Simulated assay, not measured.
Amino acid sequence: MKTKILLLLLFGWAGVIFGQISKFKERHILFVYERDSDKKQNGNNKEDSLIYIYFVNNTNQKEEIISSNYDSHSNLISRTIKGGKVLDWSKKQVLTFKILEDNGVIVDQDDTKIKLKANIKAEKGRLYIYPWKFNGAKEDKINKFIKNNTFCIELKDNVNFAVNMHEWQAGVMTIPLKAYIGRRNKENTGGMVETGVGIGGYAGWKFLAKTHFVKLNHEEDYRVYVSGLSINGLLGLSAVQLADDNSNDNSVTFRGKFPALNTGIALGAHYKELGLLLSFGWDIPLNKYGSNWNFKGKPWVGIGLGYKLF
């Protein structure tokens, strides 16, 4: 009964954590540089491969033509127009240091770049940028500018554009390899390395991370993936095998499996949704038979695998 209650609590905790973390958004960091003093713009410093942020006023709209029909003399017969209007990106402008300064961003005399915190979404052949609101003396002016315009980045073909980011994350994990540090009964040496597979969840903060946007010439849509490091809390369940060589008191006759709650912390290395977790923690027995376990109350180090859900 106790095990079932702990299971419910575990998955209840995971549901609450995952639900809360899913409300957080990725925080991407972009820069707009003062070009007279720094010829770098969100990428490398080669003039032919600079990556600029563009914007267009939301009032600049046009009808979107889906298809056109012509006769044999190339005269237009008819056009199919999509309902509603779309932004006219032919009127786009480059977002510059001066434009942001003129629209209320406070900068010091020695500043050569302005940092933008934003969410980025790959859609319809562009990277749409949704800047976060500014805080400051002229926040009303700059935030009005952000509201009245739409921002994007247009990548050339075969470019891997990486943007610094950080975020809260959560996922499921297993720790298939553990090594216990110390034991209660020094004479029994079995079970110091465990290879059993448990199941649990992790939640933490991803840092030193980048979101990669890749535009290949034979693909219309962008490829998007994230890489980076994280620090996480762990909570899971596993089944521990109690045997003669890993018991504390050999006079206790019970031999078999008992459930244990896995708690700990982990440093993660992530690529896309997969994560490698270098973990440290403790296993807490969930019934009376676990009190005879030689590693009760002893810490462990382990290697785990995680899959990001949120």
Rank of each mutant, 00 (worst) to 15 (best):
T3V: 10
T80Y: 02
N44R: 08
K91L: 13
K178E: 00
I181C: 01
L10I: 08
E26F: 10
S230N: 05
I303R: 03
N188H: 07
S78E: 10
T150P: 09
K178F: 00
L277H: 12
G228K: 05
T150G: 03
L100G: 02
S37A: 11
T174I: 06
K298N: 11
D71C: 11
K121F: 04
K272G: 08
K288A: 15
A209M: 03
L95Q: 05
S68Q: 13
I175G: 04
N42L: 01
L208A: 13
W168Y: 10
A118I: 02
S68G: 06
W293V: 04
I106N: 14
K98E: 15
D88W: 05
I5D: 04
L7P: 03
L76R: 11
D71H: 01
E187Y: 07
G304S: 04
N75G: 01
W13T: 15
D157H: 09
K133D: 13
R223E: 12
K215L: 09
Y128S: 04
A170S: 14
L276R: 03
I231D: 06
K62F: 07
I142F: 03
N143H: 04
I181F: 00
F258E: 10
K85D: 08
A243Q: 14
D110F: 03
D71K: 12
D108A: 09
K296M: 09
G136N: 06
